[in-house]
Amino acid sequence: MVYIHSVGSVGRREDETLDVKASWKAISAKMIRRTDRFIQLALLGAYDALKERDVLSDTALYMASGQGNLAVFKRLRDQRYIQKQPPKPVDFINSLSNTAGFYVAQYFELTGKNLNISRQSLSIETLLLLAQNDLALKRESYILLGGVDELQEPVAFTQKTLGVCDATPLGEGSNWLLLSSEKMGAKASLVVSKKRLDRDSLLTRLEREEATTFVSFGYHCKAEDVSAIKALKPFQVFEVKEGYHETVAAAYCTHFVTKQKGRLIYIDADKNGYTVIEIETL
């Protein structure tokens, strides 16, 4: 069993604005040099998770992103192929996958393991499963786990990159959870499914839930399966208004712990089947 000790979240839908620089300046008088918006987004979310508590220096940092720092990648591409210039050194460094994780670790003086995964679907579920295993095996005592995705303008560019239709409301977010196998002082428990479930296994699994359980559906759930789940029991649907990005599952986790009491089943899928994240507030 994994316990959530703290959560932090910043995000927005595409029709909202989020001035990341101004938000960071409200926290710290000085901008952290050589950081771009993606990194600042990561810092803001992690700060929100840790602002009211001390964190052990050997806390591990696991970070996921669907696309990584896409803005700097796009800038590098333009510099190289359109402007015919070599990349700026800082842009090149920031294009590396774990630079945001480095800056978060540096700011909070974390010296533990620092991991980054970039995966187009179920990136949070994959990272949570890794954290669940590492905590169960006592490889780590605390893990700061976050999902960060930045919405790129124009929105049509992001729609094309993500392969989503025009009707899907997009968003961005930086959502972080401080996890441990220690129950004392925790806000919620969390379990992520170890195996993919097919439709029938998922329905069987949900039949065991009380009707008071909240359910949330990721963007890759099939509409007919969502209807079948809703027909099982009068589950309450827990919604997050952050819009779609590839680590939005982390937003469901952080928002539920912050805003709701009870039990949440978050369901999403990829081509191999369904995954389930269970959260129960304490």
Partner: peptide, 9 residues
Amino acid sequence: SLDALQISM
């Protein structure tokens, strides 16, 4: 040293 590279660019 990274600033040196930036200035060089």
